[in-house]
Amino acid sequence: MSTANPTLVQSNPWDELRTHTSARIALGRVGSSLPTTELLRFGLAHAQARDAVHHPLDIDTLKTQLHSRGFRTLHVHSKAADRHQYLLRPDYGRVLDSASREQLMAEAPAPELAIVIADGLSSFAASSHAVPLLELLKERFDTDWSQTPVVIAEQARVALGDEIGELLKAQLVIVLIGERPGLTSPDSLGLYITYQPRRGRMDSERNCISNVRPEGLPYPLAVYKLDYLIKKALQLQITGVNLKDNSVLPLLQSTPTA
């Protein structure tokens, strides 16, 4: 971005405080107002967050990436016809459209897990982070991966995983979903784990790992936690508020980001 004429902007001599936070501090001012450089920086971040919400998930690329890594994919759509309806009717994003429901009813049951990759509120998060995350999970968690369905879901909310998991008779559903983007995090992925998924499950019956992205919770740490929760959930036959994430990460915490 262009450099401002220093004679016009009243800068703040506390730039060094920025080492403590990613908050927009020491921005300087012109009169009472934001300097042009900062105005444009903010505008760009907002534009990227808006695009993350409205950009459709690139299904074909995602499928190709998953197939080349040996995953079996399915593709479904929620009852929300488009993004406009998705934003206005959260309830529609939590159920499948009838074609998708029929399709899943005809599918072979999942061996153990069902995985859902959902656009949610950030398609960027789903398209950037879901595949590398699943690759790491595959290395760490042992199951019949060749038969485990990876369901790509459009216009989806977290609870759509309940119906998908129920129809596929999965013991556990893992939903990888784009979180509501912030200005500094347009591509945060959320991971939701629900034991014995079925329609009507409450949010208190799931476990969540949030802010998964290289600048937030990096892949290896996220997968470490995910693997821990999956194993505990299958062992204790429960997810939600009664399943505590007691995974300790003393060694991994010093690992550089993926």
Binding site: A23, R24, L27, F42, A45
Partner: peptide, 18 residues
């Protein structure tokens, strides 16, 4: 008053000191 109107914890935009 939030630095640059960007709340990095709650992920929303509000109003700033400016």
């Amino acid at each position: 008053g939030i630095p640059g109107a960007d709340d990095i914890m709650l992920n929303y935009q509000s109003t700033s000191f400016h």
